[in-house]
């Protein structure tokens, strides 16, 4: 290997260290889970695990995009629930009308995201407080649509997307892979996607360099809404019903932030990727499954989960060992 290739590889490793840590963590935990599961790695076990994990993975992907611009979207969980409630109302009937409903739900999700982005960009309010407020609005609308849990969903689409492809591959993973392929990768390679990283690193410098700051932010929040609503759709396909649940919305919002951090994305913006967040989400989900197979007393589970979460996010503290100047700590 030539010297140039060596340093390229080292650079790539350093750049993706966060993602690779999350992948390794997930691999270890999932192996532990499967080897202790009474049934082993059957397609059914994998599908159940995938169906649950993909929900958080999509919401975590959604959270990644605003975070990369040094923002935050505290409404992802509410958009997720809103999409769930709307989908349980309009994704019904024949396959054709069901697909129309799917498109409508995704459109509404994107619109919700766009409203967040518009308030952040043109209203120039802080993302954290903006999305806190719009989250309340979206939750209110979900409650209006579905005051009590219920509804239905087009079962052909639901069975297709939550079952197995060729009897082996969990279809939910294929959906996730498809979304990465048509949303994340083109976005990452687009001008506005790169602009999002520039804005997250240094908004002033990005502006002075002629980066389309406003459009980059708008697109990031809009896509966040779209991805969160995709998660809400998948939830509907799993549960066959809609529920305007504040605890679910809150839990998904908070877990999405944790997944983003575990996946190696910096909350200070400009660094990370949605791929990392997907594995961060898988890690969080596998923790719950592990508790299940190891038969931990139910009373201890929330504490164990909390400690693991705290420990996982504390891994980010290793950066303080690398700083050469104490002033670098204050960023």
């Amino acid at each position: 290997m030539s010297h140039g290739a060596m340093s390229n590889a080292r650079y790539w490793l350093a750049h993706n260290a966060g993602v690779l840590t999350a992948v390794a963590l997930f691999a270890v935990m999932f192996t532990l889970y499967v080897s202790n599961h009474s049934a082993g790695l059957t397609p059914a076990v994998a599908t159940t695990a995938a169906n649950k994990a993909v929900l958080l993975a999509l919401v975590a992907m959604a959270q990644t995009l605003p975070v990369l611009t040094r923002g935050l979207d505290l409404s992802v969980g509410m958009v997720f629930v809103l999409a769930n409630c709307i989908a349980s109302t309009i994704v019904v009937g024949s396959v054709g009308t069901g697909l129309l409903g799917v498109a409508a739900v995704l459109g509404i999700g994107a619109l919700a995201g766009f409203i967040n982005g518009a308030i952040v960009v043109w209203g120039r309010l802080q993302p954290i407080i903006t999305t806190l407020a719009t989250g309340a609005v979206y939750y209110g609308i979900s409650l209006f649509i579905r005051p009590s849990p219920g509804g239905d969903v087009q079962s052909d689409i639901a069975d297709l997307l939550t079952g197995q492809l060729f009897g082996v591959v969990p279809a939910a993973l294929v959906v996730l892979f498809f979304i990465v392929l048509v949303v994340w990768i083109p976005y990452r390679r687009s001008i506005l996607g790169r602009a999002a990283y520039a804005v997250g690193s240094n908004e002033q410098a990005a502006y002075m360099s002629g980066v389309p700051v406003q459009r980059a932010k708008l697109l990031a929040y809009t896509l966040a809404g779209l991805l969160a609503s995709a998660g809400g759709l998948m939830l509907t396909f799993n549960t066959y019903s809609g529920e305007a649940s504040a605890p679910i919305a809150g839990a998904y919002t908070l877990n999405s932030i944790a997944a983003v951090v575990i996946g190696g994305t910096s909350l200070f913006g400009g660094w990370g990727s949605a791929i990392g967040s997907i594995f961060g989400a898988f890690v969080l989900r596998t923790i719950e499954d592990l508790l299940f197979v190891f038969d931990l007393p139910p009373l201890w589970q929330p504490l164990f989960q909390g400690v693991v979460l705290l420990f996982a996010v504390s891994l980010g503290a290793f950066r303080i060992l690398r700083v050469r100047n104490r002033l670098e700590l204050f960023t």
Partner: peptide
């Protein structure tokens, strides 16, 4: 007011009041 309407009004009030307070600075040095 049902809970749904309360949440919507609650969120809108926060946004509108903050917009009245004055918006943040533009990204310009």
């Amino acid at each position: 007011m049902p809970e749904a309407g309360r949440q919507v009004i609650y969120g809108c009030v926060i946004i509108v009041m903050l917009l009245i307070y004055g918006r943040g600075a533009k990204a310009r040095s």
